[in-house]
């Protein structure tokens, strides 16, 4: 079984939840509830980054999401036409972001968590820019239900 669908929204933070809930519903039959949480969070973080950092909060720009449902994996691509993100931003994002000292109140992070969360929640994350288009490709593998 392979099926795919493309969805798009205007670059408006108010519209992100609509898209996230639609994609979560699409994954319902393939992924556990915990993995649906992982996908929904990653997608929201990815789109927030595009709108906030790529388009600098400007509305009226396009954000596309392509969802591929396969027997063994869910592939989600977030496509935008903003200036590309520097490659090292994704490369250096990791769970180390959360290795903070909880006794140092000022040092507890308030932002810069999105890409780290995406990498922690998805099995593969790749970013490609060509021409005026950027694609963040995220893969979540389907864990077969145990008998």
């Amino acid at each position: 079984m392979v099926s795919s669908i493309s969805l798009s929204i205007d670059s408006d933070l108010d519209k992100v939840s609509l898209l996230a809930r639609a994609v979560r519903a699409l994954c319902q039959d393939l992924l556990s509830s915990d993995d649906q949480d992982a996908v929904e969070l990653s997608l929201v973080e990815a789109i927030n980054n595009v709108i906030k950092h790529g388009y600098h909060g400007e509305r009226g720009k396009d954000v596309q999401v392509a969802v591929g449902l396969q027997a063994d994996q869910v592939v989600i691509e977030v496509i935008d036409h903003a200036p590309p993100m520097p490659a090292q931003v994704l490369d250096t994002a990791s769970e180390d972001r959360f290795d903070f000292d909880e006794t140092d109140l000022d040092g507890i992070p308030e932002g810069g968590m999105g890409l780290a969360l995406i990498r922690m929640n998805m099995d593969e994350v790749e970013y490609h820019s060509s021409g005026s288009e950027n694609r963040l490709r995220m893969v979540k593998r389907v864990v077969p239900l145990s008998e």
Partner: peptide, 9 residues
């Protein structure tokens, strides 16, 4: 649902 922006707040 809460994202990192909500958590940051």
């Amino acid at each position: 649902f809460i994202d990192s922006s909500g958590l940051g707040a």
